[in-house]
Amino acid sequence: MEYVLSLLPLAIKMVIVVGILLLLPLPLTWLERKIAAHIQQRPGPMRVGWHGLLQPLADAIKLLTKEDHIPTEADRMLFAVAPVVALVPPFLVFVAIPFGDPVQLFGTTVTLSLADLNVGLLFILAVSGIGVFGTILAGWASNSKYAVLGSLRSIAQMISYEIPMGFSVIGVVMLANSMQLTQIVAAQQGLWNIVLQPIGFFVFFVAGLAEAQRIPFDLPEAEGDLGAGYHTEYSGIRFSLFMLAEYLVLVALAFLNVLLFFGGWLGGPAFLPPFLWLFFKVGLFIWVFMWLRFTFPRYRYDQLMTIGWKVLLPLSLLNILVSGFLML
């Protein structure tokens, strides 16, 4: 009984986090469409609800009631499994993301994270690495040229950008002397890492964009040349699972950027509660990602590889070297 009770806070936190994560794509699609529209001097969705706020709900209902089509040539089992596989890593990432310092609630100390792992950063990088499996399975199972090409591209892209991404955070880890995300944030008290690690931030930001397959690195689902890439053959609810995974990766990326380089929940003057600071910064990052999306064209494939191997990798290595020397 004691044991079960001790699990209760964790269970509550889990329900809250999963619930929020499942609902988050709804406002995000709205935001994305609004930003796209305003960049093109349109108002965007306006007719469902106030300023189109209920539009995502209408879209969700549409997607859920649409025919769930499986191509005859497809590998049915893998085809069904792939969206779920794609959905798992983003959720796993949020296991290790802390949302603030522990708070006192009803006389007990509640940590604002599901698990504050002492290798949190490593765990996150490792888990986001499995994200590529959903893409590969989807492309392979669809048995379609576009889908396979898309997933091939995504494999190459994910592998080449994971390396600079991993290297770019080493500077942060050196500064904090820890891989625990709460420690990393605590180490930024006074001075945010962005000041000390501008190159590291740049590499992490760009590699993160590529990992999340956002424009200008969205080659795996280039609508122009691949139909829709690895999820060309998906429709209805399975497609919406991919969308969900994509938005969650985006949010996770924004969280990581804020936690590692922008002081997490540490704000300037303390007129906002810490977690609001965190969400404010994360929101800002999400907005920047969307702004980038509707500004830049897509990179060519060879340019993508050049940026990854010839620019970001040397830069991240240089960053480690320089931070190492400066710390000595």
């Binding site: 305003h38 960049i39 093109q40 001097q41 349109r42 108002p43 306006m46 702004w291």
Partner: peptide, 24 residues
């Protein structure tokens, strides 16, 4: 060049929309 592009789109984002709210 990327920054120039971002500045341009930011300007557009902040400017008024031109869409007629027809027929509402």
């Amino acid at each position: 060049d990327l920054l120039a592009g971002l500045r341009l789109t930011l300007g557009y984002m902040m400017s008024k929309t031109v869409t007629h709210h027809y027929p509402d």
